[in-house]
């Protein structure tokens, strides 16, 4: 899922300063699962903004709407009947959703209420961690399911580096060394000989280095 963090309240309040009719938009997908921008978080933020503005003597009208998805046109179009009743849209969806809604309603500003952070997993209730950077050329077969691109701070392919100490990364002692994890996994699977294979330089053109990416499936186009 895409994991996001809510922006600091002061930053949100500053963005909303000129407006008194706000459409607060949530998303039922990733940001709901990472407890950042689902209907519950939308309700909490709306309540917080209303109380703050009431206290300041500048009350606001907020409509709370949570779309099934903000990254598909059919859901975004469902805002059409009422989006123009509001001066501005404050979105708790990920960066994709925020942009996509803005692209559909060019006369409305869509402001971000969250910082979109990474693609990750729920390690335990309330704990999310990064697992994929979408490099566009997966190597998980060679590293037995542990991604050196994402989980190694340097994204190195023939690790570990000298900063690996007692299984943790020098960048952060809380972070396990990805290459230690990979070597442990080779041992676990009795495949340590694979560790001797030198990995060639990675072609990063499939990653962000090649600019924004696009995928087209002609057979699915209508």
């Amino acid at each position: 899922m895409i994991v996001a963090n809510r922006k600091p309240f002061e930053e949100i309040i500053e963005m909303l300063k000129p407006y008194s009719k706000i459409l607060l938009l949530g998303c039922n997908e990733c940001v709901t699962v990472c407890a950042t921008g689902g209907s519950k978080e939308v309700a909490v933020l709306a309540s917080e903004i209303r109380m703050y503005r009431q206290k300041e003597g500048k009350p606001v009208e907020i409509r709370e709407v949570t779309l099934e998805r903000n990254c598909d046109p059919e859901y975004v179009e469902s805002l059409k009947p009422f989006i123009h009743d509001y001066e501005v849209v404050l979105s708790m969806a990920c960066g994709c959703g925020i942009q996509f809604v803005g692209e559909h309603y060019r006369d409305r500003l869509v402001l971000p209420a969250v910082n979109t952070t990474f693609d990750g997993v729920t390690e335990e209730h309330g704990v999310w961690a990064e697992r994929c950077q979408g490099c566009g050329n997966c190597v998980l077969d060679r590293t037995l399911g542990i991604c050196p691109v994402t989980r190694c701070a340097k994204s190195i392919f023939n690790g570990p580096c000298g900063g690996s100490q007692g299984g943790t990364c020098e960048v952060n002692k809380e972070t396990p060394c990805a290459w230690q994890l990979i070597v442990d996994r080779y041992k676990e699977m009795n495949m340590l000989d694979r560790y001797l294979e030198i990995q060639p330089m990675k072609d990063w053109s499939t990653s962000r280095d090649g600019g924004p990416r696009k995928r087209v499936r002609e057979d699915l186009k209508i």
Partner: peptide
């Protein structure tokens, strides 16, 4: 008692 219930009381 959810967070929003407490906030609604204050609101």
């Amino acid at each position: 008692v959810d967070i929003i219930l407490i906030l609604k009381a204050f609101e």
